[in-house]
């Protein structure tokens, strides 16, 4: 049974990350953008876990844990924002939120 190459895991993580990025770039709906951000965070976690497994150290998984906590906090705030935006504008179109324009 051939062991897994560390690089293979990282390539998978890279693919997931790029898919998430493509999602952020293409979707106009804030909810879908948030989902894509979750994918990207997850792929970063995957890379950390892979690194931890490569060196047989717990640190990778601990980093994953922190990412997880961060994602949880981020999602709760972001979803509150989504609710508020939908409440005030009756739309989730990111292109309508342009008040910070010059």
């Amino acid at each position: 049974m051939a062991p897994i190459h560390a690089h293979t895991v990282l390539v998978v993580a890279a693919i997931l990350f790029v898919l998430g990025l493509a999602g952020v770039l293409t979707r106009k709906n804030i909810l879908f953008m948030l989902l894509s951000v979750e994918i990207m965070l997850n792929s970063a976690g995957l890379a950390f876990v892979a690194a931890g497994a490569r060196w047989q150290q717990p640190d990778g998984q601990i980093m994953y844990l922190f990412i997880l906590a961060m994602a949880a906090a981020e999602v709760s705030v972001a979803l509150a924002l989504v609710v508020q935006i939908h409440h005030q504008r009756k739309s989730l179109d990111i292109d309508q939120l342009k008040e910070l324009k010059d």
Binding site: L21, V24, L25, K28, M33, I94, D95, L97, K98, E99, L100, K101, D102
Partner: peptide
């Protein structure tokens, strides 16, 4: 340059990319 500051989030992400 202020054209780039157009308030569109996706535009900013593209810039980062």
């Amino acid at each position: 340059f202020s054209v780039t500051q157009n308030g569109s989030l996706r535009w900013y992400v593209t810039g980062v990319l």
